[in-house]
Amino acid sequence: MAEKSGVYLKKIMNDPIFRIFILMSAVVIFGALLMPGKFLTAGNMTSIAKQLSEYGILALAVFICMVSGGIDLSVVYIANLCGIIIGTMLSKTIGSSDFAGSAAWMIVFSSAAVMAVGCVCGALNGILIGKLKVPAMLATLGSGQLILGISTVITNGQAITGVPAVFTKLSGIKFWILPLNFQVFIFCAVIMYMIMSRTSFGLRTLLIGSNSKAAFFSGINNNRDLVKIYTISGLLASVSGIISTMRMSSAKPDYGTSYIMFSILICVFGGTSPNGGKGNVPGIVLAAIVLQMVATLMNMFQNLSTFYRDIVWGALLLIMLIINYILDNRHVTKR
């Protein structure tokens, strides 16, 4: 009997989603104890939900690239570029005094335009990595710089201001208690889940990450799929850029360059293997929630500067990698 429950326990511990769930519960309890009355409030939860959306969507972008055996270090720059473009477009149309059209349609149109830009950037990455065989790390590092450069040219190095209020007010809309941003994140997560777990494209992505050579020999068109994968990543990045501009009513070329590490952290936390071939969307969502909770909790301690967070994130990334490794690789004992 004891043996059976031992096996059952092992099975649970092996499930990455379950691990995160336990962590999340631990954080909630911890937070409730440390900051009674302040942590577990609706207002706090709303604030957490609002903030994590941008990271979460970027994490989804990095996630799909990681599963395919690569990575996308340019997502933040794509997001910024898109934020800059939509901010500029809106401030020059709705924001100008002689605008006579429908603001709503303008917003929709600009969003669509900007998402197209994101797709193009992503496709560029996909071609570099697939057709031109540049390693994902180098390709996206380089393309990120290029996109940063383009953003700098567009804005002359300044931040975009003058984003019309009708746009920025959107971020305040709540459905039930959850803000629009969060809804967008969940929407993206659901779509990604459907793609990764339910379509053959998602399975192909996984297989390319598992063994790209075998995928090629099995007739999978690696190059075409890689372009699609990175296009999706670029698209998600653009969405993140849109809601980021919405929330802050400004955008600049080099905003949030530390987000990339945070996104990778969310992916690793969520059970994605940096080597490819392993990972799932629910893990990403849960990981994003947990980590945002931790961040908010740390914020509540007034005397803790934000830079302590960097230490925590960095250390957490390393610890998570090691824990995942130990739990997943217990079979080889060499020396």
Binding site: Y308, G314, L321, Y325
Partner: peptide, 23 residues
Amino acid sequence: FDFPSLIVTLGTSSVFSGIMYGP
């Protein structure tokens, strides 16, 4: 461990800069 160097050094980079700017 057999982790990709990019990710490990991303983590340690964060720790180093955090120490520098923080404490």
